[in-house]
Nucleic acid binder design. Structure first.
Length: 383
DNA sequence: TCCCAGTCAATAAT
DNA sequence: ATTATTGACTGGGA
């Protein structure tokens, strides 16, 4: 009991970033008063806003922090939803992502560092756990209350809250179907997109358009997919960087690029008959992990190679759909014919599609370099 | 405009 | 019930 959280004076907070429009859900767990845009309780501390603290934070070991946080949470049976909502001001999904794949401190933007600073602060707080547990109890109580009242009272309670609408229902008078159906790409579509990515991480609008129509997807979906894929690949690399450097735990050496296999899964296997290794990817994590940000300038220039492709540099196979319906085809994917990967035996038990990711990233880098090289003076090539 | 970093939020997977 | 995944959105850059 005793929810003695000294909410203290709100830290001025000049401009609350964060705008977010409506946020219907987000039930407010009992009494706790919290504004949608409020920077969160934020541990007492001096009267600094987090932003200020982030700005002067000394460089934290994000990996160690997330590791510790995960440990504390599991040890005490605290879920990441509660933790995220209460301590970080983030949703469960974001927390999960953050804890599982923290980016190294130096690659984080100011905003991106914020959650880590909050976590650090939380870890330092001697009562961190108790406070969270209190919150949990509080929530449970509120939940029980609701249940009980709806049970004994037999019905609706809250006076108008939540206007969530279901959708579905095909018809309904004047309906605006305001409830995104949530696009879900089928395995084949992802497959095709990945393939396209490997040849061209930065497809031209033309190519995107083409992919979209071939896969029967909205253009924006394809664009989004590329954006997401690129950044997620990038992130994977960051992780490697951390693990390779960290001296934590037994073993863990620097030098031998041994990587624990990520989950298998991922049907994938792009290599067709053609050889196996994708180009020489033999970079034993040594390349420039620098942050060549802002070093390259670029003008546009896209060399497109369509069909007849005869150019290509690295190894590559034909692109376009992977045994996908042709151009049109109404059909609604789904079902799918468990495609038969044609190339019979996937002779590759030891997948490690991690290599592939690296290769893809190399292509990515190459892409940028080429762009920079094609025009303008090569300022500085750093290697 | 395109890109990216951060997130959200629906829904898959455990 | 939680945690993991992922298409889409937002805001900042250039």
């Amino acid at each position: 009991i005793s929810a003695e959280e000294s909410v203290n004076g709100l830290t001025g907070d000049p401009l609350a970033s964060q705008s977010s429009s409506l946020k219907p859900p987000s039930e407010d767990p009992s009494g706790g008063e919290s504004q949608p845009g409020t920077p969160l309780p934020l541990p007492g501390h001096s009267g600094l806003s987090i932003q200020e603290m982030v700005a002067m934070s000394p460089e934290l070991d994000t990996y160690a922090i997330t590791k510790k946080v995960k440990e504390v949470l599991t040890d005490n049976n605290l879920g990441q939803r509660l933790f995220g909502e209460t301590i970080l001001g983030l949703t469960q999904g974001s927390v999960s992502d953050l804890l599982a794949r923290p980016k190294p401190w130096h690659k984080l933007s100011l905003k991106g560092r914020e959650p880590f600073v909050r976590m650090q602060l939380w870890l330092q707080d001697p009562h961190s756990v108790e406070k969270l547990m209190d919150m949990k109890r509080l929530e449970k109580k509120a939940y029980m209350k609701r249940r009980l009242s709806s049970l004994s009272d037999g019905h609706s309670v809250d006076g108008g809250l939540v206007g969530s609408e279901y959708m579905q229902g095909s018809q309904s008078p004047g309906q605006q179907q305001l409830k995104k159906p949530r696009v879900v790409l089928g395995p084949e579509e992802k497959e095709a997109l990945k393939k396209a990515y490997q040849q061209k991480p930065y497809p031209s609008p033309k190519t995107i358009e083409e992919l979209a129509s071939q896969l029967n997807l909205k253009t924006s979906t394809v664009i989004n997919w590329f954006h997401n894929y690129r950044s997620r690949i990038r992130r994977e690399l960051f992780i490697e960087e951390i693990q390779a450097a960290g001296g934590v735990g037994p073993g863990s050496e620097a030098g031998s690029p041994s990587l624990r296999g990520s989950k298998s899964g991922e049907g994938d296997s792009c290599d067709g008959t053609e050889s196996e290794g994708t180009v020489e990817t033999r970079q034993s994590l040594g390349i420039g992990l620098e942050d060549h940000r802002g070093a390259c300038k670029d003008h546009d220039m896209e060399a497109e190679s369509e069909a007849g492709g005869s150019n290509n540099s690295p190894a590559q196979l034909d692109c376009t759909a992977t045994g996908l319906a042709g151009p049109e085809a109404s059909s609604s994917s789904s079902a799918s014919s468990t495609n038969i990967p044609a190339s019979g035996p996937a002779r590759n038990p030891r997948d490690n599609n991690l290599r592939k990711k690296k290769a893809a990233n190399l292509n990515n880098i190459i892409h940028r370099l080429e762009k920079a090289a094609s025009k303008e003076d090569p300022s500085e090539w750093e290697f």
